[in-house]
Structure formats: structure tokens, C-alpha cells
């Protein structure tokens, strides 16, 4: 069975329109007879889907439940559970004045990184889709930021920006762009902007390759037809290529949103030494609650909020873009 046939047999309405596209109608017959045996079907399927269910419960639901549970407990500094406090941890959180700024910064962080990464990847993928000598090597080179550890990439930039020994700082001074080394990672705004740059850099390989895969599915004959009809390059790209990329793009955006939202290491390294909360996002704030203040309960509460935000964003996105819908 091809995946296409599978969707057919499941989604098929009872009205037999099958003749129109000439496909076999086996699914309809089975669905009619199945009403009484559905439960038996479920049981006979259990051995096959059981392990997957265990996996989902074990690694997805169980930790989420523990997290939600912890967020309603009073956990001491040394990790002892002192009993339930209801929503007190959430109240602590909402009374925390910098939280508003942290939320706004989180939105800026996700929006900026994903937008820039996707736009850059569109251009990059278009370039890599052309045949030119050495394309294979360039394609491999694009993978490097993905293959390198994020922490390592970030540390390289971090030390490059260091005030006394940083090579990037020295370069900027040498080309007279700045007069003296600047504390890029010691001021909230500049550290945040650099972090966005690094996040874009490490997001490029995945996004580019997803789009590249999408480009490969654009049929050559359609492009040729467009050419024959006299469509210009921009027109061809906007009207022919982009719509064909919808599937690849929506997957790339969705996964990037979740990844970037949940990303800790870049911001932790780049903005970690900055006092106050002027460069924090939800993720670094969760980390500060655990690492500096040892408040596992409040950190759990913030994690739950972060979790809900991701769920809401994804729900809105799925509703608007319908990435699962076939063209």
C-alpha cells in the first residue's frame, strides 16, 4: 500500500464517488461491516501500537505530568517536597515584574530568528538547487553549523567578542568600525542581537535542506511551461515555485518555532553574565530559577506556561497554515 492509498481508505466518505478517479473501493466495504467488530479490531491492534503508546506515555506524557505536578508543590531548596501550595508558584511568577519584558523578548527572539532563518534559507536553497561545479562540496559545507555542537559554535563567537582577547572585536577595531573594543556580550541589547545571529546560523542547515527537498519536487515541466508562457523569473518564483514549497516551508517554520523557543544554550552563554533580566527569555529565566535561586517549583510553573505557549502557537499555526493538508 502506498501512503496515498491509506489516506484514501480512511478519509473516504461513505458516498461511493470512487468511480470518478477509478480507484479500488475496498475500504468502504470494510468500514460498513466493521461497526460491531471495532473493539476486537482495537484489541488485535494493541500488540502493534502498544509499544508506541508506552513510548508516548514514558517519554512524553509522564515527564509533562511530573512537571505540572511539581508546579503546584512547595519544593525546598534541597529538593524536598513540602506539600501542595495550589497556584502559589504561579502567583509568585505573575508578581515578578520583569516577566512582561521576558515574554516580549521571547516573542522577538522566536519571530526574528525564524523569519531571518527562513528567508536566508530560501535564497540559499535556490542557489544550491542550481547546477554548478563543486555544488556537492558547497552543499556539504552548509551542513557544518548543524554538525558542530551549538555550545561550541556559540563559544567561538563569545570568545571572539571578548573585550581583551576577542578576535572579532579586534577586527572591528582594525577596520575602524569602532574605536575601542566593545563589550558586545556584556550589554543586553548587543548580546541579544548577536545571539539572534548565532541562532539563525545554526538554524540554516535544517531549514535549507528542508526547502531544498521541497525544490526537488517542483516538476521541471511546470517550470518549462511557465517559461513558454513568457513568465519572468520573479513571476515564476512567486506564482509557481513558492506554492509548490508550501509543504516544505510549513514544516520548516513549525519545527523552527518550537526549536528556537526552547533553545537555551546560545542565550545562556551569550547573555549569562549580564546583570538584571534585560536579556532573558522564558527559557533562560527557567534556567535562572533552577540554577541561581534553586526554586524548582517556580521553575516548573514557568515551564508549564512555556509549554502552554508552545501548544497555543502551534495550534494557531496549524489552524492558519494547515501544514498537514494536501495541496
Amino acid at each position: 500500500m502506498t501512503p496515498d492509498d491509506m489516506t484514501q481508505s480512511i478519509d473516504e466518505p461513505p458516498v461511493p464517488t470512487g468511480a470518478a478517479n477509478g480507484r479500488p473501493r475496498a475500504g468502504v466495504v470494510r468500514a460498513r461491516a466493521a461497526a460491531g467488530t471495532r473493539l476486537t479490531d482495537l484489541f488485535s491492534a494493541l500488540p502493534w501500537i502498544g509499544p508506541a503508546l508506552i513510548l508516548i506515555f514514558g517519554v512524553v506524557l509522564f515527564p509533562a505530568v511530573v512537571m505540572i505536578y511539581n508546579s503546584t508543590r512547595d519544593i525546598s531548596l534541597s529538593g524536598i517536597d513540602k506539600g501542595s501550595v495550589g497556584f502559589e508558584n504561579y502567583e509568585t511568577l505573575f508578581a515578578f515584574a520583569p516577566l512582561g519584558g521576558i515574554m516580549v523578548r521571547t516573542v522577538i527572539w522566536v519571530f526574528a530568528v525564524v523569519t531571518i532563518a527562513v528567508l536566508a534559507s530560501l535564497a540559499l536553497a535556490q542557489f544550491l538547487n542550481k547546477a554548478f561545479p563543486g555544488r556537492q562540496i558547497v552543499r556539504m559545507a552548509v551542513l557544518i553549523p548543524w554538525a558542530a555542537s551549538v555550545v561550541m559554535t556559540t563559544l567561538v563567537v563569545y570568545y571572539g567578542l571578548e573585550g581583551y582577547i576577542g578576535i572579532i572585536n579586534k577586527f572591528l577595531v582594525d577596520i575602524n568600525l569602532i574605536d575601542a573594543p566593545y563589550g558586545w556580550t556584556k550589554n543586553a541589547t548587543s548580546a541579544f542581537v548577536w545571539s539572534i545571529g548565532i541562532a539563525v546560523f545554526v538554524s540554516l542547515p535544517f531549514t535549507t535542506y528542508t526547502i531544498l527537498a521541497g525544490l526537488a519536487t517542483v516538476p521541471a515541466d511546470v517550470l518549462e511551461a511557465a517559461k513558454m508562457d513568457g513568465a519572468g523569473r520573479i513571476r515564476t518564483y512567486v506564482a509557481i515555485v513558492l506554492p509548490q514549497l508550501r509543504g516544505a516551508l510549513s514544516v520548516a517554520v513549525l519545527i523552527n518555532i518550537i526549536n528556537v523557543f526552547n533553545s537555551l544554550p546560545i542565550l545562556k552563554i551569550m547573555t549569562g553574565s549580564i546583570p538584571g533580566y534585560d536579556a532573558d527569555t522564558v527559557m533562560t529565566m527557567i534556567f535562572k530559577y533552577i540554577q541561581n535561586e534553586h526554586k524548582i517549583d517556580v521553575a516548573s510553573a514557568l515551564s508549564v506556561i512555556a509549554f502552554l505557549i508552545v501548544v497555543v502557537i502551534v495550534a494557531i499555526y496549524v489552524k492558519l497554515v494547515k501544514p498537514m493538508k494536501e495541496l
Binding site: 502498544g50 509499544p51 508506541a52 508506552i54 513510548l55 514514558g58 509522564f62
Partner: peptide, 15 residues
């Protein structure tokens, strides 16, 4: 199924 079961076992024992 075998692969999934192995993964599930690993996950559960890790937990």
C-alpha cells in the same frame, strides 16, 4: 514493532 518496543523499554528503564 520490535524497534518501537525496544525504544519503549529503553525509555521506561531510563525513566
Amino acid at each position: 514493532g520490535g524497534i518501537v518496543a525496544t525504544a519503549a523499554l529503553a525509555a521506561v528503564s531510563l525513566a
